[in-house]
Nucleic acid binder design. Sequence first.
DNA 1: TCTGGGGTCCTAGGACCC
DNA 2: TCTGGGGTCCTAGGACCC
Length: 433
Amino acid sequence: MSEATEQIFALVDVNNMYVSCERSFNPKLRKVPVCVLSNNDGCAVSRSNEVKALGVKMGTPWFQMKDLARQHGIIGLSSNYALYGDMSQRIMTILAEYSPNLEIYSIDEAFISCRGLGGLWTSTTAMGQHIRANILRCTTMPVCVGAGQTKTLAKLANFMAKKAPLFEGVCDLTTMSSARMEWFFTRIPVDEIWGVGRRISTKLNAMGIDTVQRLKDASPSAIRSHFGVVMERTCYELQGVSCLAMEEVPPARKEIVSSRSFGELTRSVDELSEAVTMYVARASEKLRRQHSVCSAIHVFVQTNPFRTQDPQYSGGKTIPFTDPTDDTRVLTGAAIQGLAGIYREGFQYKKAGVMLLGLIPNSIKQASLFDTEATRQSSAAIMSTLDKVNQRYGRDALRLGSAGIAQRWSMKSTNRSPRYTTRWEELPTVTAN
DNA sequence: TCTGGGGTCCTAGGACCC
DNA sequence: TCTGGGGTCCTAGGACCC
C-alpha cells in the first residue's frame, strides 16, 4: 500500500470526562475518589480511577454504593452539563489545530484523520504525545490517544493506552509488530471492542470467541451469518480493512428527545403539563438550531417501574402535523393535548418526555413540493408518472429534479399505530436517455 | 426511600402490488 | 377464481454507543 492512500485514524478520548472537569475547577477533588451522578443524583455516570478500582460499575445507583462511599470517602457530585459542554468545546478547538479532518464523535471523544500529516511529525506517537501535553497544559484535562488503520483499531488502541501504563497515554497500532499486537489481542476480552456489547459478547463467548484476537481471526462471513452486517464490518475493521469513514460534518438529527425522571412522584396532570411544556421548549430549540421542522410530536408518561408494588402505567401518543413545523407554541399545544389523552388518574408518575419525529431540513421543506396538500398530491402524481416511465423503459430512464432537489416523502400512517420516519431522497436533476 | 438521558442502525416478517 | 413468486415498503423490536 502506498503511503498516500494508507489511512491512519487517531482517537483522542478524555479520561473520566465529567470527573476530570470537576477536578479541573476544584483541585481539592484530585487524589480523592469522586464520581459524577446523573439527574436527581440517581446513578454514577462518571467515575474517577479510584472509584473504578473499588469495583463501582458505570450506572451503579448511588444509593447502592452509599456504604462503600462512607467507607472510602467517595464524593458524589451532581452533574453540571453546561460546564462539561464548555470544556468539550475548548478541547475540540485545540484538536482542530492538528488536522483539517476532525470528527467530533461525542462530548469527550474525537477522531482525527492523519492522512497528509506524515511530514509534520516524526511519528504518530509523537503527535499523540504533543496533543496530550498541549491539552493538559491548556485545560488541565488528561486525554489518551490511540491510532490504527481503522476506527475500530483506533478505539482499541485508545483502550490499550488507557490500561497499560507503558504506553504513557499514546498507543499506535500501525507501527506495532504483529507478534506484539497478537500478545495484547489474546489478552483483551472481546467485549472491549467497539460495537460488542453485553448480548453479543455472551453469544460470542458461547462460540469460543472470547478475545479480540479470536474475533480478528474469525471468518467475517460466518460472523455475518450469526450477527449481521454490523458485526461483519467490525470483524473486517479488526483485520485492518477500513469500513467506517470519517464523518466530519455531523448529520442532522433524525429525531430529538427531551425527557426527565422526576425527583418526586406526582399524580398531578398540571405538574405533568408543566414538565412537558419545558421539554417541548428544549426540544424545539434544538430543532431550530439544526434548521429543521418536524412532522409529528410524541408525548409519553410512565410510572416508576422499579416500584413493583405500585400499579404500573406507561402511555404515549403521537400527534402528526399536516404542515411540518418548528413553532414552539404549535408543538406545545399538540403535546399538551396529547398528554390529556394519555393521562390516567390513580397513578404516580415518575417520568415524562417528548420526541420530535419525522425531522426535515428547512431547506428541503422550502424547496419541496409538499408545502400544501395540493402540491403534495401533485408530487405524488409526478412520482407515479416517473415510476411508470421508468418501469417501461428500464430503471432510472428518467429522473426528476426540482431546483436540484426533489424527494420522495414517506410519512405514512397505516391502519396500525402510525410511525413517523424521516426518509427523503435527493434526486439529481432531470436526465432523459 | 433512592435506579439517567439522548441517540443510531439493522433485521425479521407482514402487507401489498404486479 | 385460484395459486404462486418476486420485489418493495413498513413496523416493531433488538442491540449498541456515550
